[in-house]
Computed example of a mutant assay.
Amino acid sequence: MKCSQAFLLVGLIYSQLCHSVQTKLEGPYLGQKPPSLIPQAFAPGIVSTKGWEYGGVFTPDMKEFYFLRESKADKKQEFVVFQFKNNNWHESIVSPRRGQPFISPDGKIMHLGKRFKHRTATGWSDIKSLGPEFDELPIMRLTSSINGTYVFDDADREGNGILRYSRLVKGQREAPKPLSKEINTGTWNAHPFIAADESFIMWDGVREGGYGNSDIYISFKQSDGSWGAAINLGENVNTAQWEAAAGITPDGKYLFFSRNTGSEKHPNIDIFWVDAKVIENLRLKL
């Protein structure tokens, strides 16, 4: 081997080793620096890239992060997980897309729209149906509270969808009902999130007075059990582009959502996060 070739080989190995060190993921939240009250793309170049990434959620122990993305190989949507093992985060592909993931507050159920999986001793069960009351509904996202209340979308492709809920009453699942007009106003209402303690609901939709495309809204539960007026999360979270699929991390510290950082013709959907104080700041203004 010539000297120049040897130096080239050593340089390539050194470059690869440096790259490995730079991309090593250690610590909470995939090793990312937490954001302030200004949203930041989550894990740039790792989760949020020049592509389509959507709907990120952590498990309650904060050791698994699930999201959807478009495969660079065939442009099909795939279900991805980062798992914290041996003090490092490891990426793997779970399957092709099977609905939008949400983990129940107790960590025992992975909701996937109208379907779900149970947590087992070895991982997750096969996909199961929620039952006939839900099978015919075009559910994109379903979230649940500690008490087992479901909140989910029932949307068509013309923007006429509404948000519904279903409670557990004496151990029995009640038939889905529409949420109040405070929430079901405007168009494209979808991708709801109910707080674990049922103190608020977030969703995205298009309303008068919004910032352009789909914005994220919140409604706080009132002392009489009703839902308060919809509040736009404001110009730091919402833009003239599309924001959707908001949710709070299980530790209550951060708000995650998806945003189109491209254009309508050439979208680039990324996952963003921001300090959850943005919600408490809105509550304090009421």
Results as ranks from 00 to 15, higher is better:
Gln222Asp: 06
Met140Gln: 14
Ala245Val: 02
Ser145Tyr: 02
Glu133Val: 00
Phe152His: 00
Asn87Leu: 09
Glu26Met: 15
Glu264Asn: 01
Tyr54Val: 14
Met110Pro: 03
Asp126Glu: 14
Gly252His: 03
Glu70Cys: 04
Tyr211Lys: 06
Asn147Ile: 02
Glu64Ala: 01
Pro192Gly: 07
Tyr66Ser: 07
Ala230Gly: 06
Lys24Asp: 15
Lys108Asp: 10
Trp227Phe: 04
Glu280His: 12
Pro101Thr: 04
Lys85Glu: 11
Asp224Pro: 01
Pro34Phe: 03
Ile38Lys: 07
Gly31Leu: 07
Trp227Met: 08
Ser125Gly: 07
Leu179Val: 03
Gly225Val: 08
Glu158Ala: 09
Pro267Glu: 08
Asp126Gly: 14
Thr261Met: 02
Thr143Phe: 06
Asn184Tyr: 04
Ala240Pro: 00
Gly234Leu: 09
Asn260Pro: 05
Phe7Leu: 15
His191Lys: 05
Gly123Leu: 07
Pro192Val: 00
Gly225Trp: 01
Arg97Asn: 15
Asn88Cys: 13
Pro60Arg: 08
Ala41Glu: 08
Ser20Cys: 06
Ala155Gln: 06
Arg119Trp: 02
Asn213Leu: 08
Leu30His: 08
Asn236Trp: 13
Gly247Met: 11
Phe220Pro: 09
Lys177Cys: 02
Ile109Trp: 05
Pro267His: 00
Ala276Leu: 08
Gly225Gln: 12
